[in-house]
């Protein structure tokens, strides 16, 4: 009895392992990047970055990771130089958004800067009420 039970458990584990590895391979091909947009809230609220849109432009993970951006979301925001001035100097988003590879960082501000209003919409929180008249 003991041996038979052990065999079934072993087979079960093998099946689970195969399923997991298959899922991982499929994931790498298709969706191995955050599906939801990244929302930056520092130094200003708020800036949107959509992985999907940038993948569709023909970029892959290596294009931006780990340089100019670390994989872990929120890392760039910790830096004091994560601001427009750095972008104009070719750092962070400015690596591509220089007017040649992609639109320059000092143009089309609100394509990325969605503002407090954009942030509230994304988070599903409504604007604080004020005196309507």
């Amino acid at each position: 009895m003991f041996r038979k039970g052990f065999f079934y458990i072993l087979m079960g584990l093998v099946a689970v392992a195969m399923f997991l590895s298959a899922a991982q391979v499929m994931g790498q091909e298709d969706e191995d990047y955050p599906q939801e947009p990244i929302i930056f809230t520092k130094p200003v609220k708020a800036v949107i970055f959509d992985h999907k849109y940038h993948i569709e432009q023909g970029l892959d993970c290596d294009s931006c990771h780990d340089d100019p951006f670390e994989m872990a979301a929120g890392t760039a925001e910790q830096n004091d130089d994560f601001n427009m001035k750095s972008l104009y100097q070719g750092k962070y988003c400015g690596t591509c958004h220089d007017g040649e590879s992609a639109f320059a960082s000092n143009t089309r501000c609100t394509l990325c800067h969605i503002g407090v209003k954009g942030y509230d919409k994304m988070m599903g929180t409504s604007e604080k009420g004020h005196g309507e008249h």
């Binding site: 200003v44 609220k45 800067h113 407090v116 954009g118 604080k128 009420g129 004020h130």
Partner: peptide
């Protein structure tokens, strides 16, 4: 870019309540 730092500064400086602006 609607960062609303202006609004925050105004509220703080002039003690503007939540229901007004």
């Amino acid at each position: 870019v609607d960062c609303e730092k202006c609004k925050e500064a105004c509220i703080k400086t002039n003690h503007v309540p939540e229901y007004g602006f």
